[in-house]
Design a binder for these strands. Structure first.
Length: 240
RNA sequence: UGCACGU
């Protein structure tokens, strides 16, 4: 079971996620029992594929084996799946009925609300959260930029800094995205300087620099500065 | 061996 689970998780995280579902079907065909780790990964695969009907089948299994009903990770995965498939009301239904919730459940709901343009609901949920980590902040900031509230997104970033939550490359990509949408070159340059000051704090491997670099290029292009974009491109250690 | 955020 551990080998199957590892394989499913690997496909779910590195793609193609559809292969995670295929492996799961094979696993079931081989007469093995799934455990809570299998289901959490498979539900997460359904979420990235928006495979709502497959997801519902797994949901039915979870209800059938009711030992999984109180597994917070499985419930979180289900909430996230419905939220990603824009079934925010179904996500909320599970969320409301969970015996224990944590920052992951709440963050899934925040980004789910943002996805269907219910920014107010996202904001309210965020403000009621018991604890917020950097991922929750990132989710709400992304929600604002996705819905065109770029000033709000920038404001949140400033708040985040005051709260001394440490930004990640997701945070910076969102920040640059807001600058790009505003097409404000001066602001974008400020953001760039700010990011360079934090540069040495990246702890997520060399990958993160590619993400931030791409966002910088995108931002400069949208702000109309090909020169800055080219220079950033030239300075990047890695490109994709 | 399992869940949440950006281009």
């Amino acid at each position: 079971v551990v080998s199957w689970n590892s394989l499913i998780t690997c496909y779910e995280q590195n793609g193609p996620a559809s292969e995670a579902l295929n492996v799961f079907k094979k696993m079931m065909g081989s007469g093995l029992e799934h455990d809570e780790m299998t289901l959490a990964s498979v539900v997460s695969a359904c979420a990235s594929l928006c495979a709502i009907s497959e997801g519902r089948e797994i949901h039915a299994q979870v209800i059938k084996f009711d030992c999984y009903r109180d597994d917070i990770i499985i419930c979180n995965a289900l909430v996230d799946m419905y939220a990603k498939c824009r079934r925010i009301n179904e996500a909320r239904w599970i969320f409301d009925r969970m015996t224990v919730r944590n920052v992951v459940s709440e963050t899934s709901m925040v980004s789910g609300y943002a996805r269907v343009a219910r920014v107010q609901s996202a904001k309210q949920l965020f403000s009621e959260m018991m604890d917020r980590n950097i991922v929750s902040w990132n989710a709400l900031i992304a929600g604002y930029t996705q819905n065109g509230d770029n000033e709000e997104a920038l404001g949140l970033f400033l708040q985040l800094k005051r709260k001394s939550a440490w930004p990640t490359h997701y945070t910076f990509a969102n920040l640059l995205n807001a600058c790009a949408n505003l097409a404000d070159l001066k602001l974008g340059r400020q953001a760039h300087t700010h990011i360079l000051k934090h540069g040495f704090r990246f702890q997520h491997g060399p990958e993160s620099d590619v993400f931030v670099g791409n966002s910088l290029i995108d931002m400069y292009m949208k702000c109309g500065s090909v020169v800055d974009a080219r220079q950033t491109f030239g300075n990047m250690v890695q490109r994709d």
